[in-house]
Each structure stands twice: as C-alpha cells, then as structure tokens.
Amino acid sequence: MDQPIKKPSIKLSVYGMIVTAVGGVSYFLLTDIPFIRNTAAPNIALVVVGMAMAVWGVVKRRSKGTIIAAGVSAFVGLGLIGSLTILMKLPEAEAIARTSDLLPDFTLPNQDGVPVTLSSYKGKGPVLLVFYRGHW
C-alpha cells in the first residue's frame, strides 16, 4: 500500500508572515521609545527573519497558502523598510544645526511686533537661542 507522500506544511510561511507582521506593526506602536524610533533594530530584525521564514516555506512547499503568506510577508516587510528609509532620512538642514559653527541668521517679530535680528548681537554679546514648542 502506498503511503501518501507527506507534504511539508505551510506553517513555516505562515509563522514567517506573523513574525514579519509583528515586526512591522510593533514599530508604529512603540515609536515613543527612542531606541525603537531611532534605530528600529528589533523591528528590522523581526521583519527580515519573518520574510526569510516565509520564503523558505515557499521553497519547501509551493502552494497557494505559502505563496500568499510569503506575499503578505514581503508586502509588510518591504513596507516597513521603505517607511523607515523615508522616515529616518535626515534632511540636510538638520546637519547644519547639529554641526555648523555658524547658524542661519534671521529676523523675526517679537511679542510686540518689533523685529529681532540674530546677527545684531554679533560683536556685542552672547545669545542664548531657545527653540521651544509653544502651543503649536
């Protein structure tokens, strides 16, 4: 009697999809934590591992289930990586504030509408420039 050949299960791809989803979704839920927001290291790791698992699952068993799981995985995984690339790109202006010795001059109205120019203090005295949130 022939034993039916046992096909590898689709579980690996499904787990891979779940791992990817956890990595991706958790990033957006945990952005208040500076480590997560600035590096997204655990999220990237989860997403990469998840995608690898899902794809490996397809290699081991090519079926509708594994292909769908791998597809969702890729979508979420690449979506996270894509979003991070956009979110974490430091605009050039930021580099100026962080490293440049000379800051951009400006003239802005004070609370009485009188214009205040930053460079007007040059040669006169030091300035403490405080950027604060206000009401926004």
Partner: peptide, 30 residues
Amino acid sequence: KQYGLLFHEPMGRGEIALPANFLIDKNGKV
C-alpha cells in the same frame, strides 16, 4: 525648518519643533 528642527511625527500627528538651545558667543559662533 532652516535650523533642521522640524520633526515629523511618524504617526502622522503633524510637524513639531524639537526643543533646542544654542549658545552663541560674541563672535556669532556656536
């Protein structure tokens, strides 16, 4: 924006300025 202090909230809550202090000496240098 010029000072690069504009921060985009990832959840789309909008833009906000990062708190920052700059101490500039008499010669205009940071």
